[in-house]
Design a protein around this nucleic acid. Sequence first.
DNA 1: GTCTATATGTTGATAGAC
DNA 2: GTCTATCAACATATAGAC
Lengths: 206, 206
Amino acid sequence: MAKPKKDAQARILDAADAVFVRRGTDGARMQEIADEAGVNKALLHYYFRSKAELARAVWLRIATSFVPGILEMMASDLPLDEKIDRFVDVYLTRFARHPYLAAYIIAETSRHPELANAFFSSGRDQAARRMVETLREQIDREVANGRMAPLKPEQLLVTLAGSCVFPFAARPVVSAALGLGGKTFETFIEQRRKERPPFLKRALRP
Amino acid sequence: MAKPKKDAQARILDAADAVFVRRGTDGARMQEIADEAGVNKALLHYYFRSKAELARAVWLRIATSFVPGILEMMASDLPLDEKIDRFVDVYLTRFARHPYLAAYIIAETSRHPELANAFFSSGRDQAARRMVETLREQIDREVANGRMAPLKPEQLLVTLAGSCVFPFAARPVVSAALGLGGKTFETFIEQRRKERPPFLKRALRP
DNA sequence: GTCTATATGTTGATAGAC
DNA sequence: GTCTATCAACATATAGAC
């Protein structure tokens, strides 16, 4: 293509992503999105009929890009230890790059719970079930061999997710509680990246 | 008092609390607060000058009622095991009773990080530091005696908080991922209440 | 203190020129 | 497709009666 910049529609979607995630759907302003996209407000309505639909487009893009990879990794036959390593690494990296993402997902789904379905629809719901069952089998096997304490896969999954998501979602509170500055918080996360897998694996021992 | 109901100002504050927490500050409407308080919109401005100030009053009440008790418990000389038991029990109970609270705190502080200071101001910042230092000493002592794996108190605290907060903050996503209905989610939490302390204590072993 | 009525300002959305 | 100008709908806030 001779055109170097993305076309207007793509720029608008990217800008909307940034603004909606940063401000929340209610707090976001069409004007700010237009400014960030370098176009006029009217153009937002030309490509995406309304604010609600633009918000929906942003949400779908995030939801569909968020879960799939992890689902199949967690449903694979990799050893449990390896799954923990990868899960922690992938999500800590991801949220470190998108500071507002965790809080955005939590805030939006809290007020519109049905939005959470977008994460696990069109086939991904099956993948989620497979993930849980695979984990259950892996755990049961380890428990039978006396190498692991009994544990529901659901609890493990929530623990795993929470370990990675919470520090970012609650970053301001965590920083205030522990007296962390911007740079210190990054250090805290890198520390966590190293400590978390061993910590979790110790908890799994019988 | 002959008057059975609370006075208007208190009713307004309670109503504002409910609405702001449920809808978020941006999504909340003064009309809905007035309705829920059983008064007219104009009265909200009579007692609290503006929406921003009303939101601030709600935030301060929540922030100051949220942390103090736990801070001193965690800074006390109770054994580590006991602290874990109490922390988990207190916060799981608390969030179970206020379904929107976790997401509200996360959403508001994410967009206005300075709000997090309200949790740790006027003396509570010192209490927070004392808590961290007390934990550090307790941990170091256990580590020296070979009864515990090395661990930063900051990491322990975030893990502890995340263990309790995350399931509620991300409830819709968790429910969708695991296929939990309303009642099943409660079961999940009660299961967590029992499993979490042993899980964490296993992770602390050397 | 509490209400009704109204003013003021903002924002999402549209009309229409180019 | 993209812009300028404008509308219509709310939402916050105030004035003033009771």
